[in-house]
Design a binder for these strands. Structure first.
Lengths: 221, 221
DNA sequence: CCTCACTTGTTGTAACTGCAACATTGGGAG
DNA sequence: CTCCCAATGTTGCAGTTACAACAAGTGAGG
């Protein structure tokens, strides 16, 4: 656990909580890190949504499977970030999404009940924790709204460019590495993979885009 | 204000707070109801996101205008429900959405700073308020995820049916009244209005759907 | 070096969409 | 009742997409 304290301390969930206090807090909540290997299912759709997850190392991909077999990739979670927290906080009956490890690493699963229930030992930080969680949920909301904006594009071209521009804006440069392979990127944009390939090819031919594996460079911004 | 206390008391934000305490709480936060007329701009895009809104009567439509002029209708807010709360809680620089009254009514705007800052008089209920807000944000997240699922449909037909099935599921019957006119429904589904009309016509001809103005009946579920 | 599995790119085609322009409908004001 | 206007439906068309099937590229392991 010790090796991950630094990551946890930087997590938005524990902002403002001292490292030594953090350790006690985690003990109190019975948190144990769990190692994951690429491809492992961290949380499966259908489970009761009792726990929220924090990525300690590696990355976790959250996706949803529709009845017709279509997959929607909701996003990729990086170290320090949370996943499944909305479902846990909303006390959803069944988890509608699946979380899969995108690389070897580790996660921490926290019982949301224990997180929000008053705990005699750690009550001093409890308010802070809830307040942080509020902020995390709010930002997650903004991210989701951003995803809606991407999906509002009516052509693959529009959606891809909206996504890449968003990434570039956040990265502060015009070259970004997409954390998905082509199929996952297509599922993230909710389009067909081969059609996405065609759109990428066109954009490259037009000189709008430069592509090298997962590295995209926007030539004009 | 008194006329709206009942609505507020039933709002998820004030769950578990007694009616008489509620009144004091509102005073303490300096909340004043504001009457709105159909078409009024309640919150404008670009404003600092300092306040969250609660609909007291009527309805409020939240939409976002893209750079290319395309409008995205995010949703319709009904009495007791909140809007713009994510932006307020995330302390967003500028509001990315616009809130417009869809009918005559009234709203309450609450300063999110005052909501989360400790208040000597109402501190007893403060924790409750934050906890409720957490739940509201979590549920809003689920709603947004639902919208993403709707937008993941690759044809207008799929999106419309996903939306209507969702409404029917929530209503518990197979006849629902859509709170949008055709243009707003198209903007909600992020498709062209005339193409939406065409899709509705096809579904009706096939006997899948019965339509009367804004009233849709799913013949087969 | 080769094989094999997996990822990515390519292409033809039918179907669907966005767009624009126009027809129709329905309800409110006078 | 009639007029008027906004909402809704209709249609032709060019462009885009999903789908399927296949080709090319890539990397790990023997």
């Amino acid at each position: 656990m010790t090796e991950y304290l630094e990551i946890l301390h930087r997590s938005p969930l524990f902002r403002g909580i001292e490292a030594k206090e953090l350790s006690a807090l985690l003990d109190c909540m019975g948190a144990r890190p769990r190692r994951i290997k690429k491809g492992d299912t961290v949380l499966a759709a259908g489970e009761r949504a009792t726990h929220l997850g924090i990525v300690l190392a590696g990355r976790v991909q959250v996706s949803r499977l529709k009845a017709d077999g279509q997959r929607i990739v909701m996003g990729e979670i990086r170290p320090g970030q949370l996943f499944a927290e909305s479902f846990a906080c909303a006390q959803a009956e069944a988890l509608p999404v699946t979380a899969i490890a995108g690389a070897d690493g580790a996660v921490l699963l926290l019982d949301s009940g224990r997180l929000s229930a008053p705990c005699s030992a750690a009550c001093a930080f409890h308010g802070r924790l809830i307040s942080n969680l509020l902020s995390v949920l709010a930002h997650k909301n903004l991210a989701l709204a951003g995803k809606v904006e991407i999906l509002s594009g009516r052509t693959i071209r529009e959606r891809l460019l909206a996504y890449l521009e968003d990434l570039c804006l956040k990265a502060g440069k015009n070259t970004v590495t997409v954390p998905f392979d082509r199929q996952a990127l297509a599922d993230y944009l909710c389009v067909d993979r081969s059609a996405l390939s065609r759109a990428i090819g066109q954009l490259r031919e037009e000189g709008v885009l430069e592509v090298d594996r997962g590295k995209f460079t926007l030539k004009q911004l």
